[in-house]
């Protein structure tokens, strides 16, 4: 289980390769890797968005993501999880979140990956503030997936 909270941009595809290179114990064991990448759009709720500032509650974020990763590991027959989430200033087309689950079979990795994103979105203490020119507004709620 790996959790990274990053204040700067990252490449999710490179991060996946790096995680697999750093965890040679996985080689030959996994037949399925399920991935979710969330990326910033340049529009939301009918308005253009120039950039976004993502705030979080660092100690609680880390604890919460650790808890949902452990829950996924115990609930499904999976080998490993990776969560990377941005904070700070984010611009359109920047990746915001990467979730990856490795397992022997897809029947475990797909639901575990879905569980992680839904739990993260509904419970992890992150807040988005959208900036459009001189205007700034807090995003008030996430819609269901």
């Amino acid at each position: 289980m790996s959790i990274q909270l990053l204040g700067e941009g990252f490449d999710p595809w490179q991060a996946l390769q790096q995680h697999q290179a750093d965890n040679p114990r996985l080689a030959g064991k996994y037949g399925a890797t399920s991935i979710f990448v969330g990326t910033m759009r340049d529009f939301n709720d009918g308005a253009d968005v120039d950039c976004m500032v993502l705030e979080h509650y660092p100690a609680m974020t880390q604890k919460h993501l650790q808890a949902i990763s452990s829950e996924a590991m115990s609930r499904w027959d999976i080998l490993d999880t990776l969560i990377i989430h941005r904070f700070g200033e984010i611009r359109p087309n920047d990746p915001i979140v990467l979730l990856a689950v490795w397992s022997a079979h897809r029947s475990a990795s797909f639901p575990a990956c879905r569980y992680l994103i839904e739990e993260l979105k509904s419970r992890a203490p992150f807040w988005k503030k959208e900036i459009n020119g001189e205007d700034a507004r807090w995003v008030e709620y996430n819609t269901p997936g």
Partner: peptide
């Protein structure tokens, strides 16, 4: 003790 509004992390679908 922390107080905060509903959370809005992640992305990839409509956050309204």
């Amino acid at each position: 003790v922390a107080f905060f509004p509903p959370v809005t992390g992640g992305c990839g679908d409509a956050a309204r």
